[in-house]
Simulated scan of single mutants.
Amino acid sequence: MTAWELAAVCLAGVVAGAINAVVGSGSLITFPTLVALGVDPVTANVSNTVGLVPGSFTAAYGYRAELRGQRERLLRLGAASAVGALIGGILLLFLDPDVFEVVVVALILLACVLVVAQPRLNAWVAARRAEPRPHGGAALWLGVLGAGVYGGYFGAAQGVLLIGLLGIFLDDGIQRVNAAKNVLALIVNGVAAAFFIVVAEVDWQAVAGVALGAIVGGFLGARLGRRIPPLILRAVIVCVGVAAIIVLVYG
């Protein structure tokens, strides 16, 4: 990887780290960037997951005030995220690589749809938030498990999925829901990354570039991301997602 390519990966990591802190879907920035630079799609996904872990940590740390009082909830839901991430990581490595290239296109398309639909999703979530549910019950635990499988397998838009699930089943403000989302995403990325480091091929140059950028982006996203117009964020994510689909299908 040349110096210019590494710089491009770092920049993508900054943007992805910021988006993950505020919305989720940062992998739609870093993953297609790595693929466009010639990294094999499965290796790119593995390296992207490993590289985004430091950014997930800084994003969660940036929301530490909103995390107060959520310890017991996050211990319960974090177990679901960890189990789901491990299942997703196993599926990624042991399914046929050709299957991954087909499935990932569908996942990117689904992620783009979720990002575009987020305003309506948030409105629906707000309308459903009527009864107090401190931990969300079995339905939320299973939903978070499913999101963990998705996150361990690919990861893009897992933040959007988590915000939707947490908002529906918990009686809490959107900022506290977003803070919980950041912790659960950190658990998913961390477990999947640990698994990949042991058993998969990792492009450590790509990891370094994504990680350096994501650390900065996580801090920026936690502090300043709420001021970025959501419409601009969604437009950027969708454009990059469409570009990723084109690269994967025609590259």
Rank of each mutant, 00 (worst) to 15 (best):
V202P: 13
L212R: 03
V207S: 05
D203G: 11
P229F: 05
N189K: 08
A194W: 10
R227W: 09
I232T: 09
L186F: 14
V240F: 14
A211S: 08
A222K: 00
V210E: 07
D203T: 15
P229C: 09
I215P: 05
I232A: 15
A185Q: 12
P230E: 08
N189P: 04
L212C: 14
R223M: 09
F219Q: 13
D203E: 13
G241Q: 01
R223Q: 13
V199I: 09
L233V: 14
G213W: 00
A211D: 07
G221T: 02
D203K: 04
A211L: 06
D203I: 10
N189W: 06
V240N: 07
A185E: 12
N189M: 03
V240K: 09
V238E: 12
F196Y: 14
G217E: 10
V240Q: 12
A185R: 09
G209N: 06
W204F: 15
G217Y: 07
F195A: 03
G225M: 06
F195I: 00
A200C: 12
I197F: 12
A193Y: 07
I187V: 15
D203Q: 15
R223I: 06
A185L: 13
A211Y: 07
I187R: 01
R223V: 12
F196M: 11
V210K: 04
A185I: 10
W204K: 10
V188Y: 14
G225Q: 05
V216W: 02
I228C: 05
F196W: 13
V240T: 15
C239Q: 14
V210H: 00
G221R: 03
A185W: 10
V199T: 09
L212T: 08
V191D: 09
V191T: 08
V216C: 05
I215G: 06
L186M: 15
I197A: 13
A193N: 05
Q205F: 07
A235D: 01
V199C: 10
V198A: 03
G213C: 07
I228Q: 03
L186H: 10
A206F: 00
I187N: 04
V198D: 03
L224T: 02
I228A: 07
V191N: 02
L212S: 08
P230C: 01
V198F: 08
I197R: 11
Q205I: 15
A185M: 15
R234S: 07
A208V: 12
G217A: 13
F219M: 10
G217L: 15
L220T: 11
A222Y: 03
V198N: 01
P230T: 08
V238F: 15
L212E: 07
R223S: 14
V210Y: 01
A214C: 02
L220C: 11
G190R: 03
I237V: 08
I187D: 11
V198H: 02
G190N: 00
V207A: 04
W204E: 14
G221K: 01
R227M: 06
A222N: 00
V198S: 06
V240E: 07
V236C: 07
V216R: 01
A192F: 02
L220H: 09
G218W: 01
A206Q: 01
A211E: 11
W204M: 12
I228S: 04
G218R: 06
A194S: 15
V188M: 13
P230V: 08
A192G: 03
P230S: 10
E201W: 11
V191F: 03
V210F: 00
G209E: 06
